[in-house]
Lab assay of single mutants.
Amino acid sequence: VTVHVDGVEYDFDNPEEALKFAKKVAEDKNGTYEVHGNQIRVT
């Protein structure tokens, strides 16, 4: 699973970890996250 944040890609073997990371980053920057299959984009 790849999490995209501001043009940087973070790869996770564990989808739950990826989702947790995306949620935290989105909260920290008052943004949102979208899941597209095995890609998660934080905006």
Rank of each mutant, 00 (worst) to 15 (best):
V1L: 07
V1T: 10
V1H: 09
V1A: 10
T2R: 10
T2L: 05
V3W: 02
V3Q: 00
V3G: 00
V3M: 02
V3S: 00
H4S: 10
H4L: 14
H4N: 09
H4V: 14
H4G: 03
V5L: 08
V5S: 04
V5G: 01
V5E: 02
V5H: 05
V5K: 02
V5T: 04
V5W: 07
D6P: 02
D6F: 09
G7M: 05
G7K: 04
G7E: 05
G7D: 07
G7I: 03
V8E: 11
V8Y: 10
V8K: 12
V8A: 09
E9T: 14
E9L: 13
E9I: 15
Y10H: 07
Y10Q: 03
Y10V: 05
Y10S: 02
D11P: 14
D11F: 15
D11H: 15
D11K: 15
D13N: 10
D13P: 12
D13A: 12
N14E: 09
N14K: 07
P15V: 15
P15G: 09
P15C: 14
P15L: 15
P15I: 15
E16L: 10
E16S: 09
E17F: 05
E17A: 10
E17Q: 08
E17T: 08
E17L: 08
E17P: 03
A18H: 00
A18M: 00
A18N: 00
A18K: 01
A18Q: 01
L19N: 03
L19C: 09
L19T: 05
K20P: 02
K20M: 13
K20N: 12
F21L: 02
F21N: 00
F21A: 00
F21W: 09
A22W: 02
A22P: 00
K23S: 07
K23Y: 05
K24E: 09
K24D: 06
V25F: 08
V25M: 14
V25R: 07
V25A: 12
A26S: 08
E27C: 15
E27F: 13
E27G: 10
D28A: 14
D28F: 12
D28C: 13
D28R: 10
D28K: 10
K29E: 07
K29M: 15
K29D: 05
K29F: 15
K29A: 10
N30Y: 07
N30W: 05
N30L: 07
N30H: 11
N30A: 08
N30C: 14
G31Y: 11
G31A: 09
T32Y: 13
T32G: 08
T32H: 12
Y33V: 13
Y33M: 07
Y33W: 11
E34R: 08
E34T: 13
E34M: 09
E34C: 15
V35W: 13
V35Q: 08
V35G: 03
V35C: 12
V35M: 09
H36F: 14
G37R: 05
N38H: 07
N38I: 04
N38M: 06
N38C: 12
N38Q: 07
N38G: 06
Q39N: 11
Q39R: 09
Q39T: 14
Q39W: 11
I40E: 01
I40L: 04
I40W: 03
I40C: 04
I40M: 03
R41H: 15
R41D: 06
R41C: 14
R41T: 15
V42D: 01
V42R: 01
V42A: 02
V42F: 05
V42S: 01
V42G: 01
V42K: 01
V42Y: 02
T43E: 10
T43P: 04
T43G: 07
T43F: 15
T43L: 15
